[in-house]
Write a protein that binds this DNA or RNA. Sequence first.
DNA 1: TAGATACTTGACTATTTTAGTCAGGTTTAT
DNA 2: ATAAACCTGACTAAAATAGTCAAGTATCTA
Lengths: 141, 141
Amino acid sequence: MKLTSKGRYAVMALADLARFDNIHPVSLRDISLRQGISLDYLEQIFSKLRKKEIVQSVRGTQGGYVLNKKAKEIKLTNIFDAVDEKVKTVQCKKESKKGCNGKSAKCLTHNLWDELENHINNFFEEKSLDDLVKNNSERRI
Amino acid sequence: MKLTSKGRYAVMALADLARFDNIHPVSLRDISLRQGISLDYLEQIFSKLRKKEIVQSVRGTQGGYVLNKKAKEIKLTNIFDAVDEKVKTVQCKKESKKGCNGKSAKCLTHNLWDELENHINNFFEEKSLDDLVKNNSERRI
DNA sequence: TAGATACTTGACTATTTTAGTCAGGTTTAT
DNA sequence: ATAAACCTGACTAAAATAGTCAAGTATCTA
Ligand code: FES
Ligand code: FES
C-alpha cells in the first residue's frame, strides 16, 4: 500500500504555499522549482484544489495561488479528498451486501479492512496544514 | 492509497486456513473455491508464505497447508512482510540524506509521511490471525 | 498597448504496477 | 498406476500512475 505522488505532491505544494500565506500569492512556477515537481502536473493538482475551494487563484503577473481558508482549518482529509486520493482497503462495493469476488456475503476479513480504513483516515482527520508549517518553522528550503 | 489484492488475499486465505488449524491440511483448491481466488495466484502467494515459515506444506493426496505457528503469533505484519506488501509513503530513499526528486534535503512533508507509515504499521503489528478467527467464530462460509 | 507572467483546460501517452495466466514439473496417498 | 496437490518460473493483459503537450485566457507593468 502506497501513497501516490499526486497526494504527496498536493500536500507538499500546499505546505510550501502556506508559508507565504497572507504575504503574497505563490506561483506554481516557484513551487515547481522549489519542490522539484513538474509544472504541468502541479497545474492539474491545483485545478482540483481550487474547485474544492482549498486555494484561490490570482491571475496575471505577480499572480499565483493563496489559501482560501486558515491553515488550521485545512485537514489532510480535505486535501486528499480534493485530489481524489482515497484510502481503499476493501475489494467489494461498500454499500452492496455482496462480498469480494461477487460472493453473496462479506468475506472473513471485511471487518478488518474496514477498521484499517478508519485507522488511516483518522490520521488524515487529525493533521492540518498548520501542523505541518509549525513543524517546519525552523527550516528554510 | 490502497491495499493490493495480493495482501488482501494472503490474509483472507490464512484466515480460511486458520479455521482448520490442527484438524487437517487445507488444500489451495478448497481455499480457491471458498474464497473465490485464482488457484494459480494462491500458489504464488503460498510459496512466499512457506518461505517465510508462516505455513508448512504437506504434499501428495490429502495434502495442503497448515499453519507453522500459533494463530496468535502470526501478526498481519508477518503476513504482509512475507508477500512483499509494504507500506510506502515516502518517495525518497529512507537511508539516504537526500530528499524527494533528488533534492539535497528532506522535504517539508517527510516527517509527516514517516509518522503516517508508523501509524499504519502499528495497526499491522497489533492484529493477529487469531483476532480474525475469533472475530468470525460465529460464521460459516 | 505590447509583452510577459501566470492561470486554465482538455487531451494524450509512456511507464510502472498489479493481478493474474500458463506450462511445465514433483511428491505422495490410495 | 493414478489422481490429488504442491512447486516453479516465465509470461502477459489490464489498470493505474505520473506525467506531457497544446492551445488557450486574464492581468500587470513598462
Ligand atoms: S473486502 Fe468486503 S467482502 Fe471481502
Ligand atoms: S518524502 Fe522524504 S524527502 Fe520528500
